[in-house]
């Protein structure tokens, strides 16, 4: 599949934003005072909103994007939109409480955290639901998306934690290690499954695509036209598969090893949690590569008609 920058940015950034919103909602300790409240909310909401806005760059008609809220009964993309807006609206109300009353109502926060995670699930379901792309068509896809959203949210929330006691700081950083390990373990099992889940493995071959398997082996002789078309550009993307192994190593080094080592250092030393801000940036960078591969490596059934 074609790895569109706008969609990669959307899934990574809004995932991180909703993860942080969820952490704030469940009461992660944050600095006191309206200015801190404002800046932290701006970061969390900003990440989520930036992702959503970026997703509209991918549309042919962004001015009609509002129509996407209408089909939540049948469409995951529509549900994602509705859930995102509902979560952000409630988060806005929560931020007003935080700014003006100086307190963070837990009941509302927990509801927001729940909605934020469901939003991330809905984002993942846009891809998971597609039987045409066997790599994505697995329960592991939403687990990975939620895992990374929580990892991003936790690491960011930990970086913003004003804790002064160094043994508590060590515990918080230790938890960050754990969350990172769980998220990437999910991704490793996703990669493991993807390695075994080709189109042929789910029963789709050039023979079933043409229905000519009863006669013999089928091979494309001539494609319908000499050049590319929308389908081959969008769904028959082959460049990504070539460097997959190297890019996985880059994703793991930047997105896993680097933030893990930083968190580990803080966990051992009990040093300032602000270091986890660096871990967060590394994690996000690694996730951009991971998400690029999520698209670029995925094979779509239509590639069977184009012999690639």
């Amino acid at each position: 599949m074609h790895p569109a920058i706008s969609v990669i940015f959307f899934t990574v950034t809004s995932g991180a934003g909703f993860g942080l919103i969820a952490m704030i909602g469940v009461g992660a300790p944050m600095s006191q005072g309206p200015l801190a409240a404002f800046l932290i909310s701006l970061l969390a909401g900003g990440l989520a909103v930036a992702g959503l806005i970026s997703s509209t760059f991918h549309l042919g008609h962004p001015e009609r994007a509002w129509r996407a809220f209408s089909q939540w009964r049948s469409s995951w993309l529509s549900r994602e939109g509705v859930l995102a807006v509902a979560t952000l609206f409630l988060f806005g109300v929560y931020v007003l409480f935080w700014l003006f009353a100086g307190n963070r109502p837990l009941w509302l926060g927990v509801l927001i955290a729940f909605l934020a995670i469901v939003t991330v699930v809905a984002t993942a379901m846009i891809y998971t639901q597609l039987r045409t792309v066997p790599h994505w068509n697995s329960i592991l896809t939403p687990l990975v998306y939620v895992g990374f959203a929580i990892a991003c949210g936790y690491v960011a929330a930990a970086a913003l934690n004003p804790e002064t006691n160094s043994s508590d700081r060590a515990t918080i950083a230790g938890m960050a290690c754990l969350v990172l390990i769980v998220a990437w373990a999910l991704k490793m099992s996703w990669w493991h499954r993807a390695g075994r889940t080709s189109l042929a493995a789910v029963g789709s071959t050039p023979e079933t695509a043409t229905g000519l398997g009863a006669i013999g082996r089928v091979r494309l002789l001539e494609s319908p036209h000499s050049g590319e078309n929308y389908l081959t550009r969008e769904m028959v993307h082959v460049i990504g598969r070539k460097h997959a192994a190297k890019l996985r190593a880059i994703a793991l080094t930047t997105g896993f090893a680097a933030p893990l080592l930083i968190s580990l250092a803080v966990a051992i030393s009990g040093g300032p949690l602000a270091w986890l801000g660096v871990a967060f940036v590394c994690l996000i960078a690694g996730l951009f590569v991971e998400r690029w591969l999520f698209f670029a490596e995925a094979r779509h059934a239509v590639s069977l008609y184009y012999g690639r």
Binding site: M1, H58, L59, G60, H61, P62, R64, A65, R67, A68, L77, I126, Q129, L130, R131, T132, V133, S204, A209, Y230, L231, E234, M235, H300, A301, V302
Partner: peptide, 11 residues
């Protein structure tokens, strides 16, 4: 809206 998701869903 030209999101293209339907084209992804069609095998």
């Amino acid at each position: 809206i030209g999101c293209g998701l339907c084209a992804w869903a069609c095998p």
